[in-house]
């Protein structure tokens, strides 16, 4: 068995070349064509109307001014002034970009490798492995909003667990993990890691189980250390899973809205692009043009990893 076969299990599950026998549309009856058309058409319509057209509408709105009240005829043209405003004048914008970046780097450098490490260790036929897996995986079941609430109980300066352990809860020198601008981003990242590492662990473990054991054995017989086996043999053949994990890390970093919103609405050191979009959409101070300009920036930033990921995923299919 080649390395390739070991990690591309479609060769295991479905070795046959199926394409030639797949039904071509021409040969279908009219009823069948209609049924098939609806089966594809209705979901596509939903997807187009509720995801893609609104995305385009966000871009459109970013060139206008509107307080969101009344009908869209109240929109006046604003040219690129919303963009000049966010780039040059809006004090929260660049911090938000920076925080999104820190979020990404932290997940990529700390949380994701922690998940990979846990997976690699658990792959070593550890005793009680299922118990460990269950524990690490538990937070993945929780919403980020709820994680914000739970960690508030850990982080609170007056009654939180950490400050209580340090004996400074409620005292002037107590540490307010979510309120202190200089540390709340890191506190939130720890909370997010609690969930993210388990997520990565489970995906990576699934991938590791698929790696041909004989490869590892061969390496071990050659006297390779565990580290060498991992970096030289396992990691390279795990390429598809690595891509998935990288993309998930990027997407999670862009999607961390729920957590910061529940902590403090995405203000005071926890500004993120997604939270700024929402801050400009809700409240009395609606400024939909500015909100949409930020949404457009976020859209562009999100499309980069999405396109990379999809082109990798579907390249094979397309060349079929």
């Amino acid at each position: 068995m080649t390395v390739d076969q070991a990690v591309r299990p479609e060769t295991i599950t479905a070795p046959r070349e199926r394409r030639p026998t797949r039904k071509r549309l021409k040969t279908l009856s009219t009823t069948d064509k209609v049924v098939l058309g609806m089966m594809v058409g209705i979901p596509t319509l939903i997807e187009a109307c509720l995801i893609w057209l609104p995305s385009l509408a966000s871009i459109g709105l970013s060139f206008g001014r509107w307080d969101g009240i009344g009908s869209p005829t109240n929109i006046t043209s604003a040219g690129i002034s919303n963009y000049t405003y966010i780039f040059t004048n809006y004090p929260s914008f660049w911090p938000a970009v920076l925080h999104n970046l820190i979020w990404l780097v932290f997940l990529a450098v700390i949380a994701t490798p922690l998940g990979v490490l846990l997976a690699v260790l658990l792959d070593r036929k550890i005793r009680f492995t299922r118990i460990y897996q269950s524990i690490f995986f538990l937070p993945v079941m929780l919403s980020l909003a709820l994680i914000g609430i739970i960690w508030q109980l850990i982080y609170s300066s007056d009654n939180g667990l950490i400050d209580s352990l340090l004996g400074i809860a409620g005292k002037p020198q107590s540490i307010d993990f979510f309120g202190d601008k200089s540390i709340n981003l890191w506190a939130a990242l720890v909370a997010q890691t609690w969930r993210h590492a388990g997520y990565v662990m489970i995906l990576y473990l699934a991938g590791l189980k698929g790696v041909d054991l004989s490869l590892k054995e061969a390496a071990a017989l050659d006297g390779a250390t565990a580290w060498q086996t991992f970096t030289r043999i396992v990691f390279p053949v795990m390429k598809p899973i690595n891509t998935v994990v990288i993309v998930i890390t990027i997407i999670e970093a862009l999607r961390s809205f729920d957590l910061v919103y529940i902590i403090n609405g995405g203000t005071n050191g926890l500004e993120l692009l997604s939270a700024l979009v929402v801050r400009n959409l809700q409240g009395e101070g609606q400024d939909l043009g500015v909100g949409s300009a930020i949404a457009t920036v976020l859209l562009v930033l999100s499309l980069v990893p999405i396109i990379i990921y999809l082109s990798r995923t579907f390249r094979k299919d397309r060349t079929e």
Partner: peptide
């Protein structure tokens, strides 16, 4: 079609918030 569907799933929902509302 598959790309359209999968990509839609990966966008941060806040991007659509205003137009959807």
């Amino acid at each position: 079609l598959l790309i359209l569907f999968t990509a839609g799933n990966l966008l941060p929902p806040q991007i659509l918030a205003t137009p959807i509302y």
